[in-house]
Write a protein that binds this DNA or RNA. Structure first.
Lengths: 188, 188, 188, 188
DNA sequence: AATGAATGAGATTTCATTCAT
DNA sequence: GATGAATGAAATCTCATTCAT
C-alpha cells in the first residue's frame, strides 16, 4: 500500500490523491483500506515513517571507518546514492509532511534529526581524530548542510540532472564539503 | 490580497485554505475575489510570482563589485538576510508551488533559475578575475548550492534557529562556501 | 425547511432520513442546506426547538381564568387539541430527541419542563383557591400526568383513534383527571 | 446477546450501535452473530420481543383476585415495579420499535395490546362485580391510561426520580387512578 | 461451527465557482 | 462594480453483510 501511495503522492500530491485511488493502487477496496488506517492522514504518516525507516536503516548499515575522512566520504556517497535511488520518496517526504498533524510532524522531524545525527557523529569522530578542523559548534550545522545538499539532488532534479550525473555530482559536492570543513576560510 | 494569502498558505497550506478565507483576509467578498482571479490556483500563481518578483528585485538592486570576493560576500549576505526576512514567503513558495499547473510551474521554475543565474554571474565574474578557482562547469552547481543553503535557513528553522542566530549562520556558511570554491579539495 | 424535515422524520425517522432528502424537501440544494446548518443534528435541534416554541406559544396564549376548574378544563382542552393537531410533530419530538447531543437534549428537556410548569401553575392556583384537593407535593406529578395523557393521544393513535374520537377522548380524560385530583381516594 | 444489545441500544440507540459492537458485547464474532440473525433489524425485533415476553410473563403470573379493587391494586403495583426494574428495557422498547419493519412493528404492537388487555380484563371484572363505575366503553381507554402511567416512570425519570421515589409514585398514582374510575366526575 | 477480512453502497460534509441582484 | 446565496461535484469515512478458510 505504501509503495502505491508514494507513487500517487509523487504524481499528484497528497491532497489531490483520493482515498479511493490509494485503495485501488494498493489493490483492495476502500473498505479494506480503512481496516488498516483510521484517516487519510494515517497513510501520509505511514508513508513518511516507512521512508525514514528505510533511509535510516540503510545509512546505519554503513561500514564505519570511524574518524577518517575516508569513512566520511563513503557515508556521503552512500547517502547521495540513496537520495538518487529514492528521489520520489524524498520529494514526497519533504513536500507533504507539512500536512501531518502536530504530533506526527514532531515524530517525523525527530527522524530527520536522527538522520542529521548520523553525520554529526561521523563529523565528531573526524574532529576528535583531527581529520577535520570544524569547531565543536559547527558540527551540527555542517551535518545539516550535508543532509540538505543531498536532498538538493532530488528537489532540483529539474535544474541539475541534465547538466550533471549523479557520480559527478557526488564527486563535486564531496570535494566541496571537504574543503568547507578543512580549509582556512578562503583567506589564504 | 497576496500578503493575506501568503499568511494563510503559511498557516494552513494552499489546499486547506478556502477561497472564502482568502477573500475575507483580503477584505473583499468572494464575488470580488473572482473579479481578480479565474481559479484558486491563480492565487497561488500570483503569490509565487510576487514573491519571486520581490526577491529578484531586491537581489538585483545589489551594489555590484563585479569579480571580487567582497562583492560575492555582500551578495550572499543580502540573500540570506532576505531569506530570514521572508521566511514565510520562502516556505510557501517551495512547499506549495507543486500545486501549480505545468505551465505555471515552468514559469515559476524559470524565476528560480533567474535567481540562480544572479549568483552564477557573480561566480563567473570571480572566476574570470581569478578570485575563485571554480571550473567553468562547476559554477552552475555552486550557484544552486548557494541558493539552497539560503533556503535551508527557512526550511530548517525548527532545527537551526535555537542553536544559531542569523548573523552567525551567515558568517559560517559564507566561510564554508568560500573555502569550498577556493580550497584544494581537502587534499593538502 | 423545518416543516419538511418534520414530515420526513415522521415518515422515516431521523436516522433514515438523509440530508439530501431534507434539502430536496425544503426545495433547495444540499449545498444551500449547509448554509443554514452545520450538521444534520442541527436540523433535529431546530425541529424540536420550533415545535416546542409553537406548543408553548399556543399554550401561553390561553385566556387564563386563574384558580378555577373551568380554567383548568379549558387549558386541558386546548392542550389536547394541540396534540391532536400536531400529532406528527409530537411523535417526532419525543421519539427522536434522544439523538440530540447532551447540551441540546438538556435545552429541549427544559422546554418540556416549561410545558409541565404551565399546568403546575394552573393547578397551584386551583389549590390555593380550594378548587382542588391536591397536596402541594402532588401538584408537579399531576402536571406531568396531565402532559403525558395528552401525548398518549399521539403515541397511541394506532390503539385509540378507531375506538374513540378526540372530543370524546378529551371529555373522558378531563373527567378522569378532575376526579383524580378531587376525589377521596376511592375509599368512600 | 439480547441483554448486551439492550444495554447498547439504551446507551447509544439502535442506529448508533454497530453489529460489531453487538457481537462483541455478546461474546462472539460478527460471523457468528449472523448465524443467529439475518439483518441488524432482527436484533431489535428479538430485543423487543424478549422484553414483551418477560413483561407479559411476569404480569400473567399475578395472583388474581378477580373482580376486587385489591386485585387491581396488586396488579398496578406489580406492573409499576416491573417498569422500575426494567427501565432500560422499557425505554429501548418504546424509543426504538419505530425502526422495525411494518410487519414486525405490528407484531410488537399486538404484544403491547396484550399488555393492555391484561388490565382491561381486570377492569372488566371490577366493573362486573360493581367495584368500579367505569362504563363498558371507558374500560379500554382506562387500561391504556394505566399502562402509559407506568411507562411514564421510565420515560420521565429525568423529571421525576429526584422528586419522588417509586413506592410513593405507586401510591399516588394508584390513588389517582382509583379516584378516576370511581369518582363522580368532580361534580360533587 | 466459527471466524474476521473484505466489500462497496451510501451517508455527511466541504468548497470552488457562478450569477442574479 | 460588488455581493453573497446558491449550486452540486467530489471527498472522506462507516458499517451491514458476505464468504473463503
Amino acid at each position: 500500500m505504501i509503495r502505491g501511495a508514494v507513487a500517487l503522492f509523487k504524481e499528484k500530491g497528497f491532497h489531490r490523491t483520493t482515498t479511493r485511488e490509494i485503495a485501488k493502487e494498493a489493490g483492495f477496496s476502500i473498505g479494506t483500506l480503512y481496516e488498516y488506517i483510521r484517516t487519510k492522514e494515517d497513510v501520509l504518516y505511514l508513508v513518511c515513517d516507512s521512508i525514514y525507516e528505510e533511509v535510516l536503516e540503510r545509512l546505519s548499515a554503513l561500514p564505519t571507518q570511524a574518524g577518517t575522512l575516508e569513512g566520511l566520504k563513503i557515508a556521503i556517497r552512500h547517502y547521495y546514492l540513496l537520495v538518487d535511488e529514492m528521489q520520489d520518496e524524498f520529494i514526497v517526504m519533504y513536500q507533504e509532511s507539512k500536512s501531518l498533524s502536530k504530533d506526527e510532524l514532531n515524530y517525523v522531524l525527530n527522524k530527520e534529526l536522527e538522520m542529521v545525527a548520523i553525520f554529526e557523529n561521523i563529523l565528531h569522530a573526524c574532529r576528535k581524530s583531527g581529520e577535520c578542523k570544524l569547531s565543536e559548534d559547527a558540527v551540527k550545522l555542517a551535518a545539516h548542510h550535508l543532509v540538505v545538499q543531498g536532498q538538493m539532488w532530488a528537489f532540483r532534479r529539474w535544474g541539475l540532472h541534465h547538466d550533471i550525473k549523479i557520480e559527478e555530482f557526488i564527486k563535486v559536492q564531496t570535494t566541496f564539503f571537504l574543503q568547507g570543513i578543512q580549509g582556512n576560510g578562503g583567506k589564504a
